[in-house]
Amino acid sequence: MPGAVWVIAEQWRGGLSEVTYELLALGRQIADDRGAALEAVLLGSGVVGLAESLGLADRVLYADSPAFAEPVGEVGSRALAALATERKPTVVLVPITNVSWDLVGLLPARLGVPLVNFCMDVAAVGDGLEARCLVFGGKMEVRAVPESEPVVIGVLPGARRADAGRSTKRPEVEPVAAPAPETCGVRLLGYEEPEAGDIDITQQEVLVSVGRGLQGQANLDLAEELAELLGGAVSASRPAVDMGWLPMTRQVGKSGMLVKPKLYIALGISGAPEHVEGMKDAALIVAVNTDPGAPIFNVAHYGVAEDLLEFVPVLIDKVKEHKS
């Protein structure tokens, strides 16, 4: 039996990130295809409870130490490298997120093994693996084969649905003693919360953006509710700012801010070049506009040709439903 497939579980501020389940679903498939075991590895402090929820894995290795309370790449990579040297997994899946990003680089360096980055999917092919990756900012897709194993794979969010990674099964949980380095040259002193009130739309991962199609400031509540549900903020086209619905700091476009959120929902925005210049690099763009010929649909990934005043309330309900 080949060595185990590892999924590095991501915990931050007391909870597991959704992406962990996505990786579990992906890891499950790889492990099954090559007849290997799927192991989730969790570093943290007081995380036994979290380990229990990783039921899709055959085994959860968890290292509990105050040193692992916060995700610091230097600390985690040393501990994981030591553990991996001992346990010899063949595939290590690491999520590409702000929390885990440092591991994506440090782990293969410490282990001296290949890295496969920006991966959307991995399949077992024969004895080996084949990864599908998005490179050049998503402009190209490659199929790539690691020449040797073990291999560390950086996996983009969305590779699988998180739901598929959840299981009610109780996994086998094994506490492991990962070495927590005394000193590694890097110390996390604390977190700085984003300043309330003064929202920087360039820093938001989700933006719900409103244009003239919103028709009035009175309807802003709709956008705000949706933004809050999605954990983002409300931004606007220039006319919406001109009309005083929102402050100038929320203006997206050529003469406002250039934004690159993970999700940009354009409500009642026509998609003038000056606006598009500011948001075209968003990872996912969903546009709602009554006019099916509006140029915004040329840059959006998904389009909804409906009246936003009717559609958004329905969407809000659905998102709420989904969340509960």
């Binding site: 969010p157 996912l284 763009i285 040329n298 990934h301 329905v314 659905k318 998102v319 989904h322």
Partner: peptide, 24 residues
């Protein structure tokens, strides 16, 4: 853009699915 058509409910569900699929 891929236009999502149908009843408002269906469209909203589909949008939710897409967002969920991207971990959003």
């Amino acid at each position: 853009a891929e236009m999502i058509a149908g009843g408002l409910d269906d469209i909203a569900s589909r949008v939710c699915e897409i967002l969920a699929g991207r971990g959003l």
